[in-house]
Design a protein around this nucleic acid. Structure first.
Lengths: 231, 231
DNA sequence: CGAATTTTTGACTTCCATCAAGTGTAGTGG
DNA sequence: CCACTACACTTGATGGAAGTCAAAAATTCG
């Protein structure tokens, strides 16, 4: 089946399915490997496909009226992609790294949703968690300093995507400085400066520009949430 | 019943209930009038009560570690209050103006939810709309200028809470400058300056410091969403 | 009316954006 | 293998938007 080791089986939508229901959902899923950079679905395009991320990182973007592109979120393994109950997707989903997905056609998934109240409720719970996370993120990017925002971004990666050993984490950044900046409402230069500052303050180690070691994930998170913006 | 003219009957959770189901929900609801300033429930406190706003404006706040208080949202007539599926509320709800609520006890509401898939799905849909709105808001408060954020706030009030006549709106601000500032990630001085600037540019009229006329709601919204931060 | 609160306005400072070089780091083809 | 290019990242100098500090004006309320 391939579901046994999937993260979604443990904390995604598949977590609530029993041995009978899982194969049913699996039967309507299509495994797909997406190379980095490829679009999964597009803003405004009809919501004909939904997906669950099995591995990799996915960028959620929106285009402004004058052509600008905004990153509104990053999605990780076990996350659900797509706007159910609406005819159109509200954003574009694009693979930031190579990614494995379970893709569902809209009709078959919605049908399954109506048949399984447990599945619907799980999706509901995940949406509420996302809402909580979105509110938290809003607080970070609207009230915190550039230094804290950058710390917050790395903390997010460490918690959601990174290889963690105890309280330390080894991160491969899925996006460039420019995209981090966009995500945080900053400029790429500022992000770069804050990264070197975080390094100077030994909160991170830069193995290369795209590879970061976080010795103390908790400390980084506390910094991001601190009331008094320091350094 | 009192439901006939209620906004929630038209676009809230009650909108999906038929003539048989509405009285059932109504039977477990307790109408309550809350004076401005009073807490409805508190962050961290057990989620024993949920509510639907029948009229008025409710402030959603969170307290930071060092005692600071953040406004994370404003809720209007027909909005649902409370974090279902979680033992604790994630935020404090406080009446910003005098408000009328339909209060539900946790147990009876959850029981009703399990009995009525339509009700649960409606609540789900509303949560997804809230998520979309939260993402939109994040864009506003992280990437836009103080001028645009202030415009965005007034636009929100005009769309959600204000007395509208065609494309113009008459607003009674439910919160002080300090709270607007907090909500927007600005300072009260900056908000005040932007308000006078909006007045100078004839985008709003200030009847009094708490009463605003928006002649062109669309224009205000377009300004808030514009790529190039002007004036 | 007078006290307290809220709002506006002013002067100055700070943080981050902008503009501009300069430094890697792949990737390509001779 | 080494130019050569293209792209990503860092670092520096400067300016402007919003924050901070301070005081005056307006509004609310007892």
């Amino acid at each position: 089946l391939g579901c046994t080791n999937c993260v979604s089986r443990r904390r995604g939508i598949c977590a609530v399915l029993n041995g009978r229901q899982l194969p049913v959902l699996n039967a309507i899923a299509r495994r797909k490997t997406i190379p980095a950079g490829q679009h999964i679905f597009s803003e405004g395009g009809g919501a004909e496909r939904y997906a669950v991320i099995a591995s990799g990182v996915v960028k959620l973007t929106r285009s402004g009226l004058e052509g600008q592109r905004y990153i509104i979120g990053l999605k990780f393994a076990s996350d659900f992609l797509g706007r159910i109950f609406k005819p159109e997707h509200a954003y574009t989903a694009e693979a930031a790294t190579d990614a494995e997905l379970c893709v569902f056609s809209r009709d078959s998934f919605v049908r399954q949703l109506s048949r399984s109240p447990k599945l619907e409720r799980q999706l509901f719970k995940l949406a509420l968690n996302e809402l909580d996370a979105c509110r938290e993120w809003t607080l970070l990017v609207s009230r915190r300093s550039a230094y804290q925002r950058t710390a917050g971004f790395l903390h997010l990666l460490a918690v959601q995507g990174g290889a963690r050993i105890g309280n330390s984490a080894h991160l491969i950044l899925p996006v460039r400085r420019e995209e981090i900046a966009d995500f945080l409402g900053l400029t790429l230069e500022t992000v770069s400066r804050q990264m070197t500052l975080l390094k100077k303050n030994s909160l991170i180690k830069l193995v290369s520009s795209r590879e970061v070691i976080v010795p103390d994930v908790e400390k980084l998170g506390a910094l991001a949430r601190a009331e008094i913006p320091q350094d």
